[in-house]
Amino acid sequence: MLEYRIEIALWALSGVLPFIMFSLWSQNDVGNSFGLNDIGLARYFLSAFLVRQFSVVWVVFSFEEDSLSGRLSPYLLQPLHPLLRYVAAHLAEQATRLPFAIAIAILFFVLNPSSFWIPSISRFLLAYVSTHLAFSIAFLLQSLVASLCFWTEKSSALERLIFVPYLFLSGLLVPLSAFPEKVLFLANFTPFPYLINFPAKILSGMPVDLLNGFFFQILWIAILLPSVNILWKLGVRRYTAMGA
């Protein structure tokens, strides 16, 4: 149990990337060029850290492990959709991660007292909802890749192909408003900006087009959900046909 706690603490720490980027952006005084002062930057990156803590997904890895170790077959026999099992695992871990996320936030405020803020209730609730939507999109995206496990033995390699654009287009490294207009325009047609950038902007109190953001979040869920469903069914059919 203690080991498990250390695990989660490490998990929380592995999300330090936004803080490293924050120190870079603020040290080099770049924020002003895209309309964010130091305080704005600090709030944005702390929000990005928090959003990531509660929307990070690792279905592909659990799934690959389960299918390689043969645990998948009994799961398929149970009257519960195996993906729901992973949803439950993720939500449970998010809950245990809460104290660590809070502790890191407090530490951040101690180091940067000027950036302290408490979002309004309405902003907080909106950010809460959009983080859950972001989690759903990320989960569905990875489930899509996980379903490919039924075809190729190592689909975790494919996960890299999602992770790379996620890293650069989600807003984990830089608020998207720093992007040149053309790049931003194109990025907005991918699901990635709605995973970090959108919820983090809400939480940090930056001006944000709520309607547009929520519309795209829901749109992506509407596209991904049936796709995952179809691919999963095809995969299971193939899996059972192979008699694995």
């Binding site: 490490l10 998990w11 720490l13 592995s14 999300g15 990337l17």
Partner: peptide, 13 residues
């Protein structure tokens, strides 16, 4: 520790 995956993640980050 049976899992060091996370510690490795911190290192990579």
């Amino acid at each position: 520790f049976v899992k060091t995956w996370n510690a490795t993640e911190v290192l990579r980050a």
